[in-house]
């Protein structure tokens, strides 16, 4: 049977389409990287909520520095680590907008720790989307604050030695302790089921932002197959076996209350 492509591309056959809130620019991410998926679910939420004109995003310094090339909304590129301060500046003068930051672990939990903690502690009505891949992707795979014990990176070539290099930082558990955070959760985007859950978390974070109850914080534990020097599938397996036990997925704080484990 000869079926022409044009016969298949019909409205009634459409099961999925790229949100128009992602631009047509070619993603700068390595194939297999979680950043693209995290971008997409964020933009799908903004699209589905119909808040493109009400949303302002902050791109960090890191692999996602060019997020503004891919997210079809007004965006500001922040200095390394300062996205929560930039978001504070915007939200304080435009409290009616949805303001979110999108940050890597080096950005959010090393150079920007102070901005992260204080924005969370002040209870700024912003959403923080935190991509934790345990490494500095952009600069070529150096150790991050979230790098696991024993994990090899270009600046811990023999594995992270906790005595001389310090411990991996559970910044998400830390910010959950602060009275200014209202919803804190940890998600992943490596399987279809995880993507659906992560998207629900992002939607919840945006919805709560409109209620002005404080910071909503979504960590996404993600892969960096290039930095980890693994093929994408293996990187995801490694993530499940090594990252998830130390950074367990699930809600950490809901409705301003820590989730009892």
């Amino acid at each position: 049977m000869d079926i022409a492509i044009k016969d298949i591309i019909k409205k009634e056959n459409l099961v999925y389409t790229k949100t128009k809130l992602m631009t047509d620019n070619v993603l700068s991410y390595c194939p297999g990287c979680g950043h693209g998926t995290a971008h997409r679910i964020t933009m799908e939420v903004v699209d589905e909520k119909g808040i493109q004109e009400q949303t302002i995003g902050i791109a960090p310094v890191g692999c996602s520095v060019l997020a503004y090339e891919f997210m079809n909304i007004d965006m500001v590129q922040a200095a390394h680590g300062r996205a929560p301060a930039v978001a504070t500046g915007i939200k304080r003068v435009m409290p009616e907008k949805y303001v979110f930051t999108y940050q890597g672990d080096g950005d959010l939990a090393a150079i920007g720790t102070s901005e992260t903690i204080h924005a969370c502690n002040r209870g700024e009505n912003i959403t923080i989307i935190f991509i934790n891949n345990g490494i500095y992707g952009m600069t070529g795979g150096q150790m991050a604050p979230t790098t696991l014990a024993g994990m090899k990176t270009s600046t811990s070539p023999f594995g992270r030695d906790l005595h001389s290099m310090g411990n991996p930082l559970k910044i998400t558990e830390l910010v959950a302790q602060l009275p200014g955070t209202y919803y804190v959760t940890r998600q992943a985007v490596h399987t279809p089921a995880a993507v659906r859950k992560a998207k629900r978390a992002v939607r919840k974070a945006f919805e709560l932002q409109a209620e002005n109850k404080g910071v909503t914080f979504v960590e996404i534990v993600s892969n960096c197959n290039s930095g980890w020097k693994m093929p994408p599938v293996q990187a995801n397996e490694w993530m499940e076996e090594n990252m998830f036990p130390f950074y367990p997925l699930g809600d950490i704080k809901v409705d301003g209350e820590l989730v009892k484990k």
């Binding site: 302002i56 902050i58 500001v76 922040a78 200095a79 300062r82 301060a85 930039v86 978001a87 504070t88 500046g89 915007i90 304080r92 003068v93 435009m94 102070s114 901005e115 204080h118």
Partner: peptide
């Protein structure tokens, strides 16, 4: 001051 100048950057960008 790091935060302050970046808050300035944010509010100026709008």
């Amino acid at each position: 001051e790091l935060a302050a100048i970046n808050m300035v950057y944010g509010a100026a960008s709008v």
